[in-house]
Design a binder for these strands. Structure first.
Lengths: 211, 211
DNA sequence: GCGCATATCCCCAGATTGTGGCAGAAAAAA
DNA sequence: TTTTTTCTGCCACAATCTGGGGATATGCGC
């Protein structure tokens, strides 16, 4: 039996959801609310396994509610159910701690399946949402691209140690070469990365995934 | 009619897939290969809408194949079908350009559904995979967590500039405060982050998303 | 008021880094 | 073989950074 709480400001839609979920064997609706005010209280009284959350609600933003809920009860799975499909909101909701993201045009059977899936540790998303989430991931992951600045092998090694936070001396010890040699490599690295200090080099390396 | 090409080195599994997909109305298998050697040729002769790709194959890695295919024919949707569920491989496959990622224990009906979904612009993933992909996304997008070391507002600002690669002097200019003040803040930052140099601070800040 | 945290400045001594130049040995490419 | 690249090492000077002292002022809470 999966215990579900619903947060959705549209009364009609909320009732419909409640009827659908509550009327299906294996599911029970333990709470149904029009806003996330006094969220903790509502959660503790309904004690759900899964929370269905709308994004736009009066009083408090659904995404903020997700963040709070994440902290208050990390084990509760959160399923966003909303009409918004802009990248920004998807991203913020997922990063806030939602485990699934469905559009409101999702069919009842898909919705029920998704509730089960999210309670079992999955991450159900509407196809369009999943594709956008994937796009976000690809944007971040880009490419581990050390070749762009064509650092030599040794230079890459030195840079790697630098990124670990080591000083020139420590790097020398780590790589079993002279302190001065490390400094020589550093010069080349600065040249190739177009930077002028260790900090800049580390910053660039980490930002652009050069290690 | 969805045209599907299969790349999978296990002959039995490949044949089974071929039978399943080819035997279902609405789907046709236009190519079935044991390795991705001469990938471009195989693709142009089979002209698929969707490619099903294994990760481990003789000759060439499936992930590398995805990258090449992405460039050669960007409109072809790629569905990974493999046994691996480590974050690294998932991440690399998705970033290389795969649009879906299924585990080999996926049921035939789910598989067929996923092929349709990916061809329609979705991003089907096995629940466990989806959850891991979500985790990756959250890791990247996680909002700055400076609170852990409770840096003050000013210290956070200084750290932010440091991460940009600026020197103490430059930070002083940027924040319109004295060089010595910057140094004072830096001392506190070092103290709180348990580091002893700019490089270390930048490294820690970027790794732990303190900015 | 009194403590406490924050933010702002200062000085010093010693260590580290940035910059410039130089050069031999080994490896790879021509 | 000759040339080029990479890896190695060194010196010197100026600039910057680190770690140790303090000092003043402004709020905020008790």
């Amino acid at each position: 039996m999966i215990r579900v709480s619903i947060f959705e400001d549209n009364t009609q839609f909320r009732e419909a959801l409640s009827l659908l979920i509550g009327g299906t064997p294996g599911y029970s609706v333990t709470g149904s609310y029009g806003d996330p005010v006094n969220l903790e209280e509502k959660i503790s009284e309904s004690d759900p396994d899964v929370v269905i959350m709308d994004i736009s609600m009066p009083g408090r933003d659904g995404i903020a509610a997700v963040e709070i809920l994440r902290k208050y009860a990390p084990d509760i799975q959160i399923l966003m159910l909303t009409v918004f499909e802009d990248e920004d909101r998807i991203f913020r909701a997922l990063c806030a701690g939602a485990s699934g993201y469905l559009l409101k045009n999702t069919s009842p059977s898909k919705l029920l399946e998704s509730i089960r899936e999210v309670s079992e540790g999955g991450a159900p998303m509407s196809p369009a949402i999943a594709r956008k989430a994937l796009g976000l991931l690809q944007k971040f992951g880009g490419k581990p691209d050390a070749s762009a600045y064509d650092l030599t092998l040794r230079e890459t090694e030195v840079l790697a140690q630098l990124v670990r936070g080591l000083s020139s001396k420590m790097i020398a010890a780590e790589l079993n070469i002279s302190y001065e040699t490390v400094r020589s490599h550093l010069k080349s690295i600065y040249d190739k990365l177009h930077v002028a200090s260790m900090t800049e080099a580390v910053s660039k390396a980490l930002r652009e995934n050069l290690i």
